[in-house]
Design a protein around this nucleic acid. Structure first.
Length: 133
RNA sequence: UCAGUCGGCCGGACGGCCGCUCCUGCUACGGUCGAAAGGCUGCGGGAGAGGAAAGUCCGGGCUCCAUCGACAUACGGUGCCGGAUAACACCCGGCGGGGGCGACCCCAGGGACAGUGCCACAGAGAACGAACCGCCCUCCACAGCAGCGCAAGCUGGGACGGAGGGUAAGGGUGAAAAGGUGCGGUAAGAGCGCACCGCGGGUCCGGCAACGGAAACGGCAUGGCAAACCACACCGGGAGCAAGACCGAAUAGGGACGGCAACGCGGGUUCGUUCGUGCAAGCGAAAACACCGCAGGGCGAUGUCAGGCUCGCCGUCCGGGUAGGUUGCUCGAGGCAACGUGCAAACGUUGUCCCAGAGGAAUGGCCGUCACGUAUCGUCUCGCGAAAGCGGGGCGGUGCCCUACAAAACCCGGCUUACAGGCCGGCUGAUAUC
């Protein structure tokens, strides 16, 4: 399992299927190659100070680590967008949240959000993260 | 003991399970991702956020652009003195002013006879020095009053009023009103005179200096604001690790070479092109070019038709350069200790240590035990009290917070701001005891 690091990959996943919960939003995208599962994390500035954002990302990362690999589909990218509740929510509960969110993603058709209006650029959820940090 | 003030320090501890980043040794030299550059992947060992890492407010190192040595202009900054430093607006030691009983704290603390400007409201007046009230003098007018007179009236005096002048003591306004207090003096007053204080320029003494002190002299002159413009002195080239260096796709575009195809026909009017002629408008001509039409080549998964787009196509190599990768990247004005110099900031010598290097960004996640704090309950005990009860201390249980402020991003020196809780030391004041 790899980390997602390139900005272009994040933008691609942002167009994919998504499922939310109290502490985070999961986005996913199936790739056509044979590569491993890749996971990225996005925590925007509106969630708090740098220390709090760090903590959110670390708890989310720990969630993914605890997860069984079979919950995710192979050759896919996932992005977890952190919310402020991830700071305080009970860890075991969050783990259940993540399993059910991934389960919902699995049952969804292949590309529900892939077709977007041509002239409307996709909302860039990760752009605010890059500068000034 | 209480209250205060200054300085320094810490900023949970131990353990379990599962992980992350970097360094290093060994093994492998394979596997995997990528077009490439390059990345990832095994086992052992070691290291891994802060006092502010923050705000980015100053000062430097370093890098590039420039050549910026000097001077000038513009802009910005600094502005009591001395020291310290790589440098500073910081720091240290002084001086002056202000506050506090005191320890101590605070100060944008140079220039207002270079010039310009501003001083709201209130007030008479706010700057080439002011007369509102009041006080005083003179004159005018005249009520009541006094004297004389039978009376008309005359004389004296002069409230209120009017005119002229003197006056800065008093009232009132204001942030600020033209030295202060006292005595003399005067019509009333006034540095008008005198004493003391203040102030001023010079002299002497002390100090490197800021500045302080002394005696004599001068009747007093320079209102405030430079955090208004400004003048003066000194300092500053610009941009910043997203600096910079190296490697380097895809696509588009540039250059060189090679191969293949093609370089065909007609028109070429006119405001094209070329040629002739003419001063010129123009006229005439030509077809290697532009342009137009046809034909031909290429492109859409393929074939045919219609239509469209395009005008050489393909290959190899070269150079610039984008994404991306590597580097810069942590041994440094470094930390600690001792000694020495200095009131101190700091500096020197010796010894010793190696102490994060990430990059969608590692240093964590989940727990357990303990400590600390706080709330509450139980119990024991001490003091006061007749009792109820009040106050203090110890032990135990439970709950809460389970820590505050906040996370390196090239590196240092400072400043500023945020911060639960706690520790240590110096000093000051008050109280008690000896």
């Amino acid at each position: 399992m790899d980390r997602l690091r390139q900005r272009a990959d994040f933008l691609a996943v942002a167009n994919g299927a998504r499922a939310g919960s109290a502490a985070f939003v999961v986005q996913s995208r199936h790739r056509d190659d044979d590569g491993p599962i890749r996971v990225g994390f996005t925590v925007t500035k509106k969630n708090g100070t740098a220390t709090e954002r760090n903590r959110i990302r670390r708890r989310l990362r720990e969630l993914v680590k605890r997860l069984d690999v079979i919950s995710m589909r192979p050759h896919s990218d996932y992005v977890l967008v952190g919310r402020r509740d991830a700071l305080t929510r009970d860890f075991a509960t969050m783990l259940d949240d993540l399993r059910s969110a991934l389960d919902r993603l699995k049952r969804q058709p292949k590309m529900p959000r892939a077709k977007m209006p041509r002239d409307k650029t996709p909302r860039d959820r990760t752009a605010s993260r890059k500068p000034t940090e």
